[in-house]
Design a protein around this nucleic acid. Structure first.
Length: 459
RNA sequence: UCCCCAGUAGCUCAGUCGGCAGAGCAAGUGGCUGUUAACCACUUUGUCCGCGGUUCAAAUCCGUGCUGGGGAGCCA
């Protein structure tokens, strides 16, 4: 007999004479005549209640089933006389697939996030993490859906890159040389290495994506990204997923329109398609979450220039730990004030001084600022960073010279500005930060299955 | 990497002025009413994070290391 998933059974309109479910026992309550098992198979947040009668032939084994055990149950789906559920299963046959040993660490009570992080291989079996990772899956699908509907092409950019300075922090080295060989030679000899060149894990697919935007029009990447920064915060991991759209014939305003549309679509999608799991977060994880989500969907996002933001901060009368200085990057507390306290909704900051932004951003007519945009959201801070790209060859080369970048290693990038260069724009959105925003989960380690952080690569 | 806080039973945590190591939950045993984090009774469980120091005596005070958390920087 084919098994039916619990989400299907719970959505049933009528009793079913014979069904088969398989899942894991979340909790069990025994009396002399019956055993009540709450079964979960991961298909949804809710468990289904199974009643095993003491007349079942293997009842002595059934009563020995522990929390965490795996069972298959054949029986009837019937209306439940008890409170708390519409349907339940009267078991006719209970197949005990595996009895969890008594040291199963997940108890039927609340656990701390810190503890669950130490058992990342089991935490998806808890309500909160099961819900979080179902939402993660749905959101990944929603991203593809959004771009597919808009006619974007999905692009796979390399994970291993030869660019030695993509301009976004420390990189992980990739090598096939044995550590002993490197030690013996006294240096890492690229000529002896697999690519006969320095190789690293990608920190962004942007430069590659630009090439394809200038061929296919609108493209996006969605894949893993690696940063070897020694960051120890609730917003950083060494391996994370990023969505990077890149659009030909698009300027900064179009870029922002697109980012806003994306974020609204994804939030709406979560509320619509993950309502049961989302309810767990709006009710138990963050009471203020629903309001944040409504704001994301309903409000028009604020747009303000860097210069105006600096002035606004200076005039706010707010006491900051760090001084606001035009020409310097804003501090976290400044960003939090802008998105969380002042605008109380997402805010695009645009036109940053070129001195604090990378070479590929388009220089504005004032010669002082670049067409950059960061989207700041309440409680997370920066969730999107992007720009209109510098499409003018001379200007791009000038910027690279100023910043001391080796133009020869970017020959292919510069080529794109020689042959039919057009205005184009794009951005990167941190997928995990999106999930934090949508679920209200405050630590990035809790929205990725097995987080990679400094000193932590268990699992 | 820097600043702050924490580390006591499987989990969550209490432990007063430095003086015998505790509770709830979990687990085990028995009971039991169609139960809902079931309930009732009984029972087991400790490198008090490691190392060093002060003291008659350290979970408690001091130093140091490790781990975790919060914040900062870097950014997505």
């Amino acid at each position: 007999m084919k098994r039916t998933k619990i989400n299907i059974l719970l959505a049933s309109d009528e009793p079913i004479e014979k069904i088969l479910v398989k899942g894991w026992v979340r909790t069990k309550r025994d009396s002399k005549e019956f055993s009540f098992m709450e079964l979960n198979d991961g298909s949804c947040l809710k468990n289904i209640q199974v009643i095993a009668d003491s007349r079942l032939e293997n009842y002595s084994n059934i009563s020995a089933i522990t929390t965490g055990s795996a069972v298959g149950v054949e029986g009837k789906l019937v209306e439940s006389p008890g409170k708390g559920q519409r349907w339940e299963i009267h078991a006719e046959c209970v197949d005990i697939i595996n009895v969890a040993t008594e040291d199963y660490p997940l108890q039927k009570k609340r656990h701390s996030d810190e503890f669950l992080r130490t058992i990342a291989h089991l935490r998806a079996r808890s309500n909160k993490y099961g819900a979080a990772f179902r939402i993660r899956s749905e959101m990944a699908f929603a991203i593809h859906n959004f771009y597919h509907e808009k006619g974007f092409r999905y692009l796979h950019t390399p994970i291993i890159t030869g660019s030695d300075c993509e301009g976004a922090g420390e990189m992980f080295r990739v090598t096939s040389l044995a550590p002993e060989a490197v030690a013996k030679a006294g240096k890492w000899d690229f000529n002896q290495d697999f690519f006969a060149h320095e190789a690293n894990l990608t920190v962004s697919g942007q430069l590659s994506a630009e090439m394809f935007a200038l061929a296919l029009g609108d493209v996006y990447t969605f894949g893993p990204t690696f940063r070897a920064e020694n960051s120890n915060t609730s917003r950083h991991v060494a391996e994370f997923w990023m969505v990077e759209p890149e659009m030909a014939f698009c300027d900064l305003a179009g870029n922002m329109d697109h980012a806003e549309e994306l974020l609204k679509y994804l939030t709406r999608y979560a509320l619509l398609h993950c309502s049961e799991d989302m309810a767990l977060f709006t009710e138990f994880v963050d009471k203020g979450l629903k309001k944040v989500l409504d704001t994301l969907v309903d409000e028009e996002y604020a747009r303000i220039s860097y210069d105006d933001a600096v002035e606004l901060l200076l005039k706010s009368g707010k006491k900051f730990e760090y001084m606001v200085v035009n020409g310097k990057d804003l501090q976290s507390e400044h960003e939090r004030f802008l998105a969380g306290e002042y605008f109380k909704k997402p805010v695009f900051l645009v036109n940053y001084p070129k001195s604090i932004k990378p070479f590929y951003m388009r220089v504005n007519d004032d010669g002082r600022t670049v067409a950059a945009m960061d989207l700041l959201v309440p409680r997370i801070g920066e969730i999107i960073g992007g720009s209109q790209r510098e499409e003018r060859l001379e200007m791009l080369e000038q910027r690279m010279d100023q910043m001391g970048l080796p133009k020869e290693s970017y020959w292919w990038y510069l080529d794109s500005r020689r042959f039919g260069s057009v205005p184009h724009a794009g951005f990167g959105m941190g997928f995990e930060r999106l999930l934090m925003l949508i679920t209200g989960i405050t630590n990035i380690r809790d929205v990725i299955p097995f987080p990679r952080t400094p000193g932590n690569i268990d699992f």
